[in-house]
Write a protein that binds this DNA or RNA. Structure first.
Lengths: 367, 367
DNA sequence: AGACTCCCCGGAAACGTTTACAGCTACCGG
DNA sequence: CCGGTAGCTGTAAACGTTTCCGGGGAGTCT
């Protein structure tokens, strides 16, 4: 009694066989109709009806096995809690979704083993491609990237000769923009709160900071430089250490999370921002606009970099023979209240912390 | 000349056939050795060697087709930029990863069509299970959840009789905790900045606020209630509207993003926090600790809810016959500087905004 | 009217893996 | 010395889909 058991999948769900049998056609015809290619009007009607009646929905895995494509794209970033990666992810997601694919997100925690393991797992062919934004790069890494079986696009600095699709920014120049701005508004004792120096962004920004100061003829005071990691708590702690031994009139921070930590530390120490200390973050995330006062920040075009990376990846998935490409997104400085120019005035506070020059809800000025 | 072409996959990568041929055994033996089940010492050696030589790595899709499991688990949340979901995601990721699976994250934007589409796509069997945290629930939704072909766990309120694994909190009670605390510290003109009332959390928190005020015999002043959405910008705008027409001495916010917006609006309007206005957020995210002053917030145990949801899901994947379960995580209030008790003092500011009673770096006190 | 084209259909082979089954050898106990 | 058992091996079938290919019917052109 009942339908043939063999027509349905192990868990009782309908397969192509089920609808083919019910429609009285072969599985080939059923498959063709369901994919919208070919079929006489009569067959189409019967198959559609049968499919609707049994509630057929194709098994994506079987389809992938046949088509050699999964419709999945992976993104690997260090810290999913960092708003800059959220923005990048949103941009990537938009592009990826518009191609009918889905995005798979991995948090690597910045640990190298984690990341290479991920790259090796790519060989399992579970995704059609991957975007990775490594903050540390080793040779092991590079070889894993180069002979990856699926297309990979890297967001961030990479050895100049690596034959890998790559979209980067010039964070060295980004730091210079911040320093130029601070110098132009009269700051001289400019401090720098950085992330780890053994990371690519950390090292680049450190070099950029030193070069920018030198260019302005300002001697570097090592007491004004502090290092933590790229998180809020470390940024705050690093700033507290810095304030305990030095007296900056401006701080550049290697990203916005650090800058928020610095702001907290400064206010807790009774410094006014920007009157006593001007503050500039980096990445220009939503967080910068959420602070009071709003933070100036160097935009590294994270959304734009994400968008471009996604496009590069899609192109490479479509055509693996493309030559490796490299794109660059220029940084730009967004000036907000935290580094607004202030009239030189008496040190003691005379009112609330509100910045006198710029309304805090203003969107800032791009330099 | 050369090896047989038929032994390798379309793109030239080795398959089980490749290593089997190279080792001089059948694909069955090769597969067994590679899976660590059976095989004579000699066979094991030959297969291992052959696999290493050709760099064999199994095709996960083919394996999935056979085993009917993909090793993927999906998470669908409204807004990936909201730190509360980041924390939840981290907790889920930890559990999921410890079971050897990977997590796939979707942002639904709170749009219902988006979410039901996602649920329907589940039928494609691309994931082994899914955790979804809907903020709006329709009948359509419910039926899609109930007859989903793969296990689903819901984080959040759900109709009492829905036969779906569910982990929730009591945000109504959470709001009560906030109101009780504010009343106990002498506040009487307590405002409420909420998210949309047509969402489940929005409606629940609104009801909770009204009930709590009533319990304290405080009449509800509609001018002290404002609604936006659950984002920062809306929270700030809503607070500005509220301040333009009323003069609260405390604000409860429906989540931390709103609370941060409210803090910004308050400070921009020259109100001191907590002296003039006490502020309590909700979700107790990292963001609350990043602010200056640090925000009091009602913890809804998002990490804990995520952890439990993941565990429920894994159990259900292991045994589909389990009866539907429901777990509850109690809310708790974390008091920080933004609602610290203050001595009644003169309205005009006498110094910086720093709260006089609590050091801002203190971690807060759970009530 | 016959040849040719076009379209539709069904059988069967793929995609790469796991696994049930049966055959074989070698060994052990009686 | 023989039946039984244990362990290993290879053949082949599955998982559910797409697609190649050949056959056949209907229509069209000459």
């Amino acid at each position: 009694m009942g339908r043939k058991r063999l027509q349905e999948s192990a868990d009782g769900r309908p397969t192509v066989h089920t609808v083919a049998a019910r429609a009285g056609v072969s599985i080939a015809s059923a498959s063709r109709v369901l994919n919208g290619v070919g079929g006489s009007p009569e067959t189409i009607r019967k198959v559609r009806e049968a499919a609707a009646e049994v509630g057929y929905v194709p098994n994506a895995i079987a389809r992938s096995l046949q088509s050699q494509r999964t419709g999945l794209v992976a993104l690997a970033v260090e810290d999913i809690g960092n708003p800059v990666y959220v923005e990048m992810m949103r941009a990537i997601e938009a592009v990826v979704a518009s191609s009918g694919r889905q995005l798979l997100v991995h948090a690597t925690g910045g640990r190298i083993d984690n990341e290479t393991a991920l790259l090796r797992r790519l060989a399992h062919r579970y995704v059609d491609g991957m975007i990775v934004s490594p903050i540390r790069v080793t040779d092991d890494h590079l070889t894993a990237l180069v002979d990856s079986p699926v297309p990979v696009v890297v967001v961030g600095q990479l050895g100049a000769d690596a034959p890998i699709d790559n979209v980067r920014t010039d964070s060295r120049h980004g730091v210079a923009l911040a320093v130029d701005h601070l110098v132009a508004t009269g700051r001289r004792r400019i401090g720098f709160v950085n992330g780890p120096l053994d990371t690519v962004p950390g090292a680049t920004r450190d070099a950029g900071f030193r070069a920018a100061l030198a260019r302005h003829g300002i001697p570097l005071d090592d007491e004004l430089v502090e290092v933590g990691d790229f998180q809020y708590a470390a940024g705050r702690a690093a700033t507290e250490r810095l304030l305990a031994r030095a007296d900056p009139d401006a701080l550049v921070c290697a990203n916005d999370l650090i800058a928020v930590g610095a702001l907290h530390a400064l206010l807790a120490a009774g410094r006014r921002v920007p009157q006593d200390v001007a503050l500039v973050g980096m990445d220009d995330t939503e967080l910068a606009r959420m602070m009071f006062p709003q933070l100036s920040s160097v935009s590294l075009g994270s959304a734009e970099r994400g968008r471009r990376a996604a496009e590069l990846l899609l192109q490479r998935i479509a055509d693996a023979a493309l030559p490796p490409r490299r794109e660059q997104v220029p940084p730009s400085l967004v000036v907000r209240a935290s580094s607004a120019a202030t009239l030189p005035g008496p040190r003691p506070a005379t009112g609330p912390t509100a910045p006198p020059t710029t309304h805090p809800s203003s969107e800032g000025v791009t330099a």
